[in-house]
Simulated assay, not measured.
Amino acid sequence: MGTTPTAPEGLRPAPGQHITAWRPQVEGVVEVFHARFTEHAYPMHVHDAWALLIVDEGAVRYDLDRHEHGIPSDTVSLLPPHVPHNGSAATPGGFRKRVLYFDESLLDRSLIGAAVDSPDLRDPVLRHRIGQLHTALASPGDTLEAASRLALIGERLRGHLSPRLLTAARPTDRTLAHRLRELLDARQVEGIALEEAARLLGAHPTHLIRAFSAAFGIAPHQYLMSRRIDHARRLLLSGHAPGETAVTAGFYDQPHLTRHFKRVVGTTPGRYARSRA
């Protein structure tokens, strides 16, 4: 996940405020920024990256291109690069927000004008996916899941900004899905980036995800994690320690193994190992 920077004395958030920022190892993502502000107000400023913002508590008001906007908790806001904007709390208790900054590999600069015209999107599916992406980005071993969720979010954003870019769904490509499954099996331990898989198989990342999910009823990252969990179970039953198992089965570290193992198997790796007859 990277190291969260510590602000020097005098620059730390005021009491009641909290900031966490990091740059994950996911192609296209410049920064992830989580903050809780009670009094801070942003002056007019610009970013060199797209900013995708959701508010979890309270509400935010801001000016973009001389027009006032508001971000309640059910709204997604997409702020384009190089366009001045500010921001402040619209509720007495302040606000808590999560922001994803990404480069033009996800959204082309030709869409900046459309984003200026309609920066606030009321799309429950999009907002839910953004929340899932933030969860994945907070886990250093879940880069394939994060890249997959980011690709689908980019597709949905492009649909909002330029509906003509949406095309009819193509038929399920079972051959493509099987080739991706073979690739995931071959790279089970070391893993593979979504962009690399797309290049090797000659397919767009979102089409690759949809073809695999339609063919097998499971997303590529879920399939890979399931294979790693099965591998870990065999290792644990053979007497390997959880820490050793995590590395051997392809997990980032033991906490990464424990989190996914408990979610799938219903118990921790240590308890599972001790339960063997």
Rank of each mutant, 00 (worst) to 15 (best):
A59H: 06
V247L: 14
H207V: 07
A136D: 02
F33E: 09
V265K: 00
E155P: 07
P269Q: 03
V32F: 03
P92S: 14
H47T: 02
S275Y: 07
D185M: 07
L152T: 09
P220C: 13
L111P: 02
H67P: 00
H40G: 02
D63G: 07
A151S: 14
S213I: 03
E57L: 02
R122L: 14
A277F: 13
S139W: 01
T248Q: 10
R170Y: 05
P84A: 08
F261Q: 07
L236M: 11
R271W: 07
F95S: 05
T3E: 14
P81G: 04
A151T: 12
I192A: 11
H67T: 11
T248H: 08
R199N: 09
P72S: 11
P171Q: 11
G10C: 07
S148W: 02
A51N: 09
T172F: 01
H134C: 10
R156L: 09
H67Q: 15
Y252K: 05
L78A: 05
G154T: 02
R98Q: 14
G191M: 03
A35E: 12
A203N: 06
D142N: 08
L184I: 09
A214H: 13
D120R: 08
V60Q: 08
F102C: 07
P92W: 12
S110K: 10
L137G: 01
L64K: 01
A193G: 13
L176P: 04
H128Q: 15
V76T: 09
L126P: 00
D63L: 11
T268S: 14
L79Y: 00
H69S: 06
A203K: 02
A211D: 08
E27Y: 05
L200H: 07
E39A: 11
F33M: 08
A193C: 07
R210C: 05
G159I: 03
E9C: 09
H260K: 06
I19W: 13
R263F: 04
R271N: 10
T3F: 10
R36S: 13
L150P: 00
P80E: 00
A14M: 10
V26K: 04
P171M: 12
V264L: 13
A138K: 03
T91G: 04
F33K: 14
A51F: 05
T75R: 11
A203H: 00
L194D: 00
V264M: 13
K97D: 11
L224Y: 02
M225T: 12
R164Q: 15
R23C: 05
Q188M: 15
H178C: 10
I130A: 04
D103I: 04
S118N: 15
E39R: 13
P205K: 09
H34G: 14
P13K: 06
D108V: 06
E9K: 11
A246D: 03
V29F: 01
G28P: 03
H160W: 15
R259F: 03
A115G: 03
R234A: 08
H18W: 12
T167Y: 13
G191P: 11
A211S: 15
T75I: 15
M1G: 14
A215P: 00
G202F: 03
E9I: 12
F212M: 09
P140I: 03
G270A: 15
G239M: 10
P269K: 02
L150W: 05
G93I: 06
A136N: 04
L180W: 01
D120W: 04
T20W: 00
L235D: 07
A177Y: 04
H18Q: 12
